[in-house]
């Protein structure tokens, strides 16, 4: 099989980029899209030309490192499949295949097909976790979880964090990514304690970098982990509920208790722990 690859080349974040066209021959049908890039790069290196930079790692669909637009579709022509598992057999002999980096303001290009997706991590860092200190967990069996609910939690937890949902979205929104994490933890008893603080904080962080969701649903077919739109419904529902349950304003949230002097003293801890730096005889 023979393909023409038209690839976005951009030397670094500030350089102006452009498309370049390359020809590849002798392609076996089971070769993946990333392996097409391997083939091309071997050819480019042999000609002493700069190979195409692209992110990739596990090459079995689980790490979420890879991601590029192929003919305008995130990851490639096959739905729910990461680029590393998309095969050349999807194309016809002689096709022109266009490859671009993921498109979104929140994912600035670093080089060629490599983009910076740390904006996704900022969303997680703002609440996508259960706060449990190491060594503090109770015996796991003390908490029973209905099998069906656990399976649904697993469906949501399957997100690989590739960012294809954002790249596929006309608004570059991250609702599917954020919704998957919120829904995963909201589904389980472990996630209940921080449920509404979590969704509130994550949505607020998300809105700093990403566009707004207008229910196009383009994210779902692009998602390699098969995350479904219902997570966005749950995200919206929990976010709305959080308005009634959680005040975003720290002062308001704790006001009544701070107003009682003896209680606020207690809340700040015993006097000898109130400021660790004051300890006269700190020892190791």
């Amino acid at each position: 099989m023979r393909l023409s690859l038209v690839i976005w080349r951009q030397a670094d974040a500030t350089a102006a980029g452009d498309f370049e066209r390359y020809e590849l021959t002798d392609i076996a049908p089971e070769v993946s899209i990333l392996e097409l890039l391997d083939m091309l790069n071997a050819q480019l290196v042999a000609e002493n030309r700069d190979p195409v930079a692209f992110d990739h790692d596990c090459r079995e669909g689980i790490c979420g490192s890879c991601g590029l637009m192929v003919n305008g579709q995130a990851h490639g022509p096959v739905d729910s499949t990461p680029a590393c598992l998309q095969r050349a057999r999807s194309f016809e002999d002689g096709d022109i295949v266009t490859m671009e980096p993921f498109r979104a303001d929140a994912f600035p290009v670093i080089r060629d097909l490599v983009v910076d997706r740390s904006s996704l991590d900022r969303i997680i860092a703002s609440g996508g976790y259960v706060s449990t200190a190491t060594n503090a967990a109770p015996e796991a069996l003390t908490m029973s979880v209905n099998k069906i609910e656990s399976d649904v939690a697993m469906d949501h937890a399957a997100c690989i964090g590739c960012g294809a949902c954002v790249a596929a979205c006309p608004n570059a929104a991250a609702q599917l990514f954020t919704g998957a994490k919120v829904a995963h933890l909201a589904q389980l008893p472990q996630g209940q304690v921080e449920r509404y603080e979590r969704v509130r904080s994550m949505v607020e962080t998300m809105e700093e970098d990403f566009g707004s969701c207008t229910n196009f649903g383009e994210c779902v077919p692009a998602c390699p982990a098969d995350i479904q739109l219902d997570v966005i419904a749950l995200l919206n529902r929990d976010y709305a509920r959080s308005m009634f349950r959680v005040s975003g304003d720290e002062e308001v949230r704790h006001k009544d208790r701070r107003d009682i002097p003896w209680l606020s003293r207690l809340r700040s801890g015993p006097w000898w722990q109130s400021d660790p730096d004051d300890q006269p005889h700190a020892t190791s």
Partner: peptide, 22 residues
């Protein structure tokens, strides 16, 4: 033994039996 407790507490959706046990 602690690892399973800890990971469960962190929200890892370990497979469950119908009775709710892991």
């Amino acid at each position: 033994v602690r690892v399973i407790d800890h990971m469960t507490a962190l929200g890892v959706p370990f497979a469950r039996e119908y009775g709710g046990q892991i």
